[in-house]
């Protein structure tokens, strides 16, 4: 196995070819290497690529470089105010040690069904910036997650763009314990409201099926309604329907179908952010 430490994005994609793997935080890849699940010919290390370690808000977007760690995002005031759902997910993902090392780009690249970063990014309407020798591409995360395979060979996840349009967002996760727990169920939600009325909604579920996904049915059910007690109950019941139809007859279905109502209520209770913006 060869090892190559890239100094910039150009170098990284130049070296990426058949049998190559990008090394981000490595918390998943180190384990897969040890278990022999992956056998790279070339390991392209991204830890020295400064342009992937950026976080800024400009041009109506929050821009997050793929090599930002969960700890860095979870301690950022910018992320808390502009992308509350993601900030919340960063508090509970893995453990302090894993959050210090694991990156948001790696979370997408590895694309575990239970990836904590994906439901919030989906709910926030994130776009993903990809780059390869073939050029650059910006694609919505929701669309990207429908692709098989997720990424073409030699494609690097450069970062994420989160539109900054005054949406409130929230996140909740169900694990078997509070720390060090793989999500059994996670839910990200974003709401664009006018007063007490929900105008637009995005809801995403994780650990329900192979990959995190946005539920358009659930969004439609909850849009253009007063966010009152009835609405809250509709959200909980709607989430149960979505989980039931996504999981079918899997063994975990009865448990998750019951549990998601509570996860939805918790996610809604955590809604925050977006207040300080015009038209919010």
């Amino acid at each position: 196995m060869q090892f190559f430490q890239a100094r910039n994005v150009m170098e990284a994609v130049e070296r990426a070819g058949p049998g190559s793997y990008f090394l981000a935080g490595g918390t998943d890849l180190a384990l897969q290497l040890r278990e022999g699940k992956v056998k790279p010919q070339v390991l392209v290390d991204l830890s020295r690529v400064a342009e992937l370690k950026t976080l800024n808000a400009s041009g109506g977007c929050l821009e997050i470089g793929s090599m930002m760690t969960f700890a860095e995002l979870g301690s950022s005031e910018l992320v808390r105010t502009k992308a509350n759902a993601l900030w919340l997910a960063c508090q509970s993902m893995g453990s302090p040690q894993i959050r210090n090392q694991a990156t948001i780009g790696g979370n997408l690249g590895n694309c575990s069904p239970a990836a904590d970063g994906l439901p919030p990014l989906l709910a926030l309407g994130a776009e993903v910036r990809l780059v390869s020798r073939r050029g650059e591409e910006t694609v919505s995360l929701a669309e990207l997650l429908k692709r098989r395979p997720l990424l073409q060979e030699g494609t690097l996840i450069k970062g994420f763009l989160i539109p900054d349009q005054g949406w409130k967002s929230g996140f909740a996760k169900l694990g078997r314990r509070r720390a060090l727990a793989i999500a059994r169920l996670s839910l990200g939600i974003a709401v664009k409201s006018e007063g007490s009325r929900a105008k637009k909604i995005r809801v995403a579920l994780g650990a329900v099926g192979e990959r995190a996904f946005l539920s358009e049915a659930l969004a439609e059910m909850l849009e253009e309604r007063e966010m009152d007690e009835t609405w809250l109950e509709a959200a909980a019941a709607g989430a149960q329907q979505v989980v039931a139809s996504a999981l079918g007859s899997r063994a975990s279905a009865p448990y998750k179908q019951a549990a998601v109502a509570g996860v939805m209520r918790e996610a809604l209770a955590s809604l925050a952010g977006g207040e300080e913006l015009n038209g919010g």
Partner: peptide, 13 residues
């Protein structure tokens, strides 16, 4: 300055 699990970090990192 930050804690990590040394079983999940590669030496090269």
């Amino acid at each position: 300055g930050r804690t990590v699990n040394s079983c999940l970090v590669l030496g090269v990192q």
